[in-house]
Design a binder for these strands. Structure first.
Lengths: 158, 158
DNA sequence: AAAATAGTGAGCAGAGTGCCCTATTCAGGC
DNA sequence: GCCTGAATAGGGCACTCTGCTCACTATTTT
């Protein structure tokens, strides 16, 4: 399913940095910035895409703009042998924007967006109602004190 | 700092859906798909950008492609009055890709990427070494059982 | 030495962009 | 009913960018 995981070199890293700085910049502009030829940039970008280096566009959409200003993380404890079915059930809840299977206290860490506290309460109830879910622990995110970033890691390779 | 938060209507939603389906599609293609004129699409896209509906490009970069296949969530308990300084200190750790201030058990929920378990252990140590950090609880993400998505929410408005 | 790999430079037809202007429709306020 | 402002459509124009191909040059691998 995944293509051969090809490891990025410094030029790829610089490409990603330039893209982070300006996601809309054209191949010509990138080539110019990096001092490469347009052909090279196009070839590398294609390889990056093919290798799965880019995730879905969803991630760039601000949930707040969609009317979901609140984010919460819900730790979910489940009957482990029902895990597979539970994931399927949870996937039906639209407010769940992401879920990780975890090693640690909880079995699942679910990321939820919601309109307000009452909404969160309702969603939590929906999760609890799933067959095999035993317990949840909800924590509301008060703020994204470090906004998602990859630039420090990119810079380190640059 | 943020522009007037303008709430998205159905047409905006469809634009975002089309973009999710194909992040690279041109204005012409979008206009075609949605049955709108190119002018309209361009105007709406500009408004979406200006209103902060799009987050950084970072979020679309796959950390695994960068050589960080593992993700972990670390709950951090701190001396609350030192919180501000702690956030500054944590921001210096490149492997921390995101952090939320939380209401709940822990004060902070930190998302970390790492190369392997030993790397995670080291990073956890670095966090613990920050002045004011009292305790951490690390959970390794075994898998993203629900990959980040916003489409269910978009579809509901469509 | 031969072969694969990455990059460059040039060229070209077609598509897309940014920006302009005007006309139409429609909802809300007077 | 009338006016206004917002949203949209449609046309046009100069310019840029894209996708593609080809030939040539390093550089590295075998």
């Amino acid at each position: 399913m995944f293509c051969t995981m090809y490891s990025l070199d410094k030029t790829d890293t610089k490409l990603l940095q330039a893209l982070s700085a300006d996601p809309r910049s054209t191949f010509v502009a990138l080539a110019d910035t990096l001092g490469l030829s347009r052909n090279t940039v196009q070839a590398r970008m294609k390889r990056l895409e093919d290798s799965g280096a880019f995730l879905g566009f969803d991630r760039r959409i601000n949930p707040a703009a969609l009317g979901y200003p609140l984010t919460a993380f819900i730790e979910v404890h489940v009957q482990q042998k029902r895990l597979a079915q539970i994931v399927i059930d949870l996937a039906l809840i639209p407010e769940i924007v992401q879920a990780h299977g975890m090693s640690g206290q909880a079995d699942l860490l679910v990321r939820v967006v919601c309109t307000d506290a009452a909404d969160l309460f309702r969603i939590d109830g929906t999760i609890l109602a799933c067959d095999g879910v035993e317990r949840t622990e909800t924590s509301l995110a008060m703020g994204e004190v470090i906004p998602y970033r990859l630039t420090p890691l990119l810079d380190r390779r640059g």
